[in-house]
Design a protein around this nucleic acid. Structure first.
Lengths: 299, 299
DNA sequence: GCTGGGTGGTGCATTTTTTGCATCGCTTTT
DNA sequence: AAAAGCGATGCAAAAAATGCACCACCCAGC
């Protein structure tokens, strides 16, 4: 969309931190880019960049402006999507920011199911930790976020929330496997794997142990749930903490998992959300509806 | 703002109903305008005008697009206003759509009071009937609406609502002036003036008489409350129906007014509202706050 | 203290885009 | 059948954006 060209340049300069670098990125001369920005600042009525000795940086006015342009670009995509929809095309693109747990089983299955009915719809799936997922919504770089234990929820409008107790993952013949529900103190006697602190699972575990005298001493700490899932196959006594939506049914995986007792560790919550107040493109809105229907079953 | 130039052209074509007329209005050649529109339609990915034998008309895609652009232009003004505000300028422009009753006393006083504190702020006041005022909000042509008995309230976000019983206006020595509160049946015995049906006062009166057997038979019907106010000075027995916010205190005007009993005629409501979900420019938001504070006193 | 590599800004020639004019093909009106 | 109005289009002129060369400046590191 041509009338947003200047904005793309501004965003590029913002990212690059200097007009020359941005000009290089955008395949244009620094002089041309410089003058575009000057011209824009003039008609906008205020400077949007601070000129520093080593480059430029957005000033508060610029921050406001960038937020405005992002919202505007996002809304234009929505309009285009609606226009395509009213000509009966059923096309569009959905971008989802999600927690790692959703990536192996849940989202692939849901997206594939949705695409069976709407083959014209394409997807972007971006794995983000819980802080970044909300950020993605706020910058309009994702339409939807599917996040376990989000941090702020300020810019996020919750479409549906489902409880997800923490599960303990282990080999099928593990001593803990005999009980249907596990106590945290029993689990900590075994070598355990834990996510790093930016993840909701870890935050809940830390909160749980804070009440008692035990502590989390992971034999391995990782930001990859995939790694932790595979690790328990290789060390007989090892256990890992994950949420059930990121785990397969027992039979299929060769591992089993058991929930932690709610007495020890509060269940976390998985949220499906969008940017507050935003009207989503048709495709995204429909996919969100479909997800919500499925997630209802997890309540 | 240059990147909205194409939109201004589109809006002009929409208004004019033909490219040639619009081109004339915008001081540009029909060919240039035509090509701008063609180019835009191409990059937008859909036609936005139907080509008719005698001109063009927006199609549904175009309607969506125009709404998007209006919202976008309005939001850009908001950003500019906020930017001006953060550089400490306290400038800006407030546009208000209001019912006629507000125009003689209430709004002039409020605006003047506000401008004493913020001389940099300018105002547009547009008198609109209750349907048009809401329309004004929806098309982003007014920031605020101050409306008596609005019709839909769908796109209008209510900031404050105050009751306004209908008052009867008459000369000071009028027989009805002796009572503190009037019955509708007594009033209808006198020659009366009534607003035309698009006004809330009339709608309330019509509802009130519908319960009984009497009917409104105005000696004069008008869409000008100003006219009706002045008319009662000239015919001794005549009365007019108005809301108190549009009337002066008795002493000053040489006329007096008495409320209709709530048993006969439900009090109407005066609403201060904005476009639903919109973030107002600083100046408008502040003025709305000031108005709300004053209106609190009318509750 | 200077020098080198980085920055944003600017004058001027060049390229690209936009515009205006003339004109076409079409439909409705007279 | 003619006239008048409409949108579309080829082509030349005008306007705008760009690229190039260069300036002044700042700061790091010798």
């Amino acid at each position: 969309m041509k009338h947003l060209q200047t904005f793309r340049f501004i965003e590029s300069v913002m990212r690059a931190g200097s007009i020359r670098k941005a000009a290089d990125d955008m395949n244009i001369t620094a002089s041309a880019l410089n003058r575009r920005i000057q011209r824009f600042e003039e008609e906008f009525g205020a400077e949007i960049f601070e000129r520093l000795p080593r480059g430029v940086r957005l000033n508060p006015a610029g921050e406001l402006l960038v937020q405005h342009f992002r919202a505007q670009a996002s809304d234009l995509r929505r309009v285009q999507s609606q226009v395509a929809d009213l000509s009966g095309e059923r096309r569009g693109h959905v971008s989802v920011a999600c927690s790692q747990a959703l990536s192996p089983y849940f989202l692939p299955a849901q997206i594939a199911a949705y695409r069976r009915d709407h083959p014209g719809v394409t997807f972007s799936v971006n794995i983000r930790d819980r802080a970044a997922a909300e950020q993605d919504l706020a910058t309009f770089s994702s339409d939807l976020a599917l996040v376990f234990e989000p941090v702020h929820l300020v810019d996020m409008e919750v479409l549906i929330a489902v409880p997800q107790p923490i599960h303990v993952l282990m080999q099928t013949d593990h001593p803990l496997a005999r009980k249907a529900e596990l106590r945290l103190r029993d689990c900590l006697d075994f070598p355990h794997l834990a996510p790093t602190e930016q993840y909701g699972v870890r935050a809940l575990l830390d909160m749980a142990v804070a009440k008692g005298t035990r502590s989390i001493r992971p034999v391995a700490e990782s930001d990859s749930f995939d790694f932790m899932r595979h690790y328990v196959r290789h060390e007989k006594a090892a256990i890992a903490f994950q949420i059930p939506i990121g785990l397969r049914e027992e039979s299929a995986s060769g591992l089993i998992h058991r929930p932690l007792s709610a007495r020890d560790c509060a269940p976390g919550t998985l949220y499906l959300g969008q940017m507050r107040g935003r009207t989503l493109p048709v495709a995204s809105a429909r996919f969100a509806q479909a997800l919500a229907r499925v997630l209802e079953g997890y309540k």
